[in-house]
Each structure stands twice: as C-alpha cells, then as structure tokens.
C-alpha cells in the first residue's frame, strides 16, 4: 500500500532554535523534507540531532522558529501531528515487564487504532514467535526492532528514527535498514539521525550534516561527494627488491591521463582501483571534526 501525497513538504523547519541554558543546542536551522524522502541527519554526539527530533515531534517546543509536519504546525496542533508520525527513540524506552504484544496493543489503543495486527508488525521486524515474551528478556537488538515496530503501529506518514542501529548486531541492524527501505517504498517520509555514514549513504536520498547546532551542508550523498570529495586511483606497484609500494593519482585533473600512462609504462602495476571520498571524509572536510566524538 502506498500513501497519497499532499502538496508541500512533509517536514518544514524554519529557523528552529533551542537552548539549554547558555548552550545553544540547535541554532537557527531551516530545511525541508519532501514526502517519501529519506533524510539523513548526521552529526557527532551532542551536535543537536536529538533536540531537533524533539522539536519536530512536539516533545519540546522550540525557543524560536517553527516546525510544520504535513502542513500542520507542530506547536499549535501537537496531537494532530503526533497522530500521523512514528518515533523510534535513541534510548530503549519500552515497558520491559510487559510482553511485546502488550506493548504494541497499548500504543495501538493510545493511537486509537482498532485494526492493527501486532503479530504482523512483529513478523516485519523478525520477532514473530516472541510476542508473548516479556521484553525484559530481549536482547538489545530485539528491543530496538520492537521499538521500530512500535513506531509503525499507527501507520505513520513520517517516521523519525533516532540512531536506530547504534550498537546493534549486524542481523538486527540489517533488519531495521530493510524496514526503512520498505517504508520508503510505501511513500513514508523518513527522518533518520545517525552517525553511521555508510548507513546514511545507503539509505538516504539526502543528508544534512549538523555540527554544533547548525546545518553545515545538506544535499544528496552523490552531490556532496562530487562537491567536496576527491576521486583517486590507488595502485600498488612492485618496487625495488620486489617490495610493494603505493601510488595515488588524482582523477579529474589535466594531468590525469599523462600520469596514468606513465604509471603503466614505467612501473609494474600489481593492483589498481578507483576511490571516492566517503561521507565521513566530507564531514571532516566541512566541519573539521570527526563523527564519533
């Protein structure tokens, strides 16, 4: 089932600002996310990602600025907005003494959803057969998958995922990534905060780099790499006495062709491959700091 689109962006943030005392956690940020788009919100810990999610989902009112979701002002109609969004939190905040099914049924009732099939949701996140177990006995990955299932209980038009795969085993992380792709195919808008650049590169239509509360760059991963990255050819050649040595040739320059010709004519090339900059390289290039801080 795909969703019908409404005119205008799914998410519009206008000059959002939030302060914790003297510290400005989110500093006058503006952006839009189109319906059905997956936006990656990338930045190190403390960059302002979670605070932005809190403002967009109506958990915290901004000190200034405005957030609009599906055309509705979040501050004026939080209940109306929250009925149409799903939020998966950074921390595990399930009712651990209840079963997975009880958790999902509770939230379905709070959303007023009568036709939800919690078993089907559990199947989607690979927890079928474990629905009657108390959540306290789940692994971290299982809890995280249940959190994603809970975020889907009201069939949201916009899905907020705050670091959904952080610290997960590869199987759980892959299950969540697959689910994000399925939701995107259904037409759901996804706002994904992460500091996993490979994940962002794979899942997101566009990525925003947030650093010290400000958006440092916002574009498609391809455009960012084109604009800020450097394409290279990296080769290993056999040096004197048979030792392997490394050679790098920058692509897209006037001298590239001549340098490549010289490489093959004067050296014995063992391996050769092209490389493009990763999002992490670009983040460091733009912000001057790494992602895992």
């Amino acid at each position: 089932m795909t969703l019908t689109h409404t005119p205008g962006p799914a998410i519009a943030a206008e000059h959002l600002t939030y302060r914790y005392g003297e510290l400005t956690a989110v500093d006058d940020i503006s952006f839009t996310v189109a319906e059905g788009e997956v936006l990656g919100f990338l930045g190190p810990n403390g960059a302002g990602k979670t605070t932005t999610v809190k403002m967009l989902t109506g958990q915290t009112p901004p000190h200034s600025g405005r957030a609009t979701l599906l055309g509705a002002d979040v501050a004026r109609d939080p209940a109306g907005v929250q009925a149409r969004i799903g939020v998966c939190f950074e921390i595990t905040n399930l009712y651990e003494q209840m079963t997975a099914l009880e958790n999902l049924r509770l939230f379905a009732r709070l959303f007023g959803m009568r036709d939800v099939d919690p078993e089907a949701l559990l199947r989607r996140v690979g927890l079928d057969g474990r629905g009657s177990d108390r959540v306290a006995g789940y692994s971290k990955g299982m809890k995280q998958r249940l959190m994603v299932a809970r975020a889907l209980v009201n069939r949201p038009r916009i899905l907020f995922l705050d670091e959904p795969t952080e610290g997960l085993d590869p199987v759980s992380a892959e299950a969540i990534r697959t689910l994000v792709q399925e939701e995107r195919e259904r037409g759901v808008t996804v706002f994904l905060t992460t500091h996993d650049m490979l994940e962002a590169d794979r899942l997101c239509d566009r990525v925003a780099f947030i650093n010290r509360g400000r958006i440092a760059a916002l574009d498609t991963p391809h455009n960012l790499k084109q604009r800020y990255g450097q394409r290279l050819v990296r080769a290993q050649v056999e040096g004197p006495e048979g030792r392997l040595e490394s050679r790098e040739i920058t692509l897209d320059t006037a001298a590239t062709a001549a340098e490549l010709q010289a490489l093959f004519s004067s050296e014995r090339v063992v391996t050769i491959h092209s490389e493009e900059a990763s999002l992490e390289d670009i983040f460091i290039h733009i912000t001057g700091r790494g992602l895992v801080v």
Binding site: A79, I85, N93, L110
Partner: peptide, 17 residues
C-alpha cells in the same frame, strides 16, 4: 521508573496529552 526509563516520552508522542 516510567519517567526514568523514558517510556513516558514514548507515550507523549502519541495523541496523549
């Protein structure tokens, strides 16, 4: 415990006031 675990935050992003 509900407040400390953050479960209340999950409740408050439903339609619940």
């Amino acid at each position: 415990e509900e407040v400390h675990s953050g479960a209340v935050r999950a409740l408050l992003v439903t339609r619940l006031r």
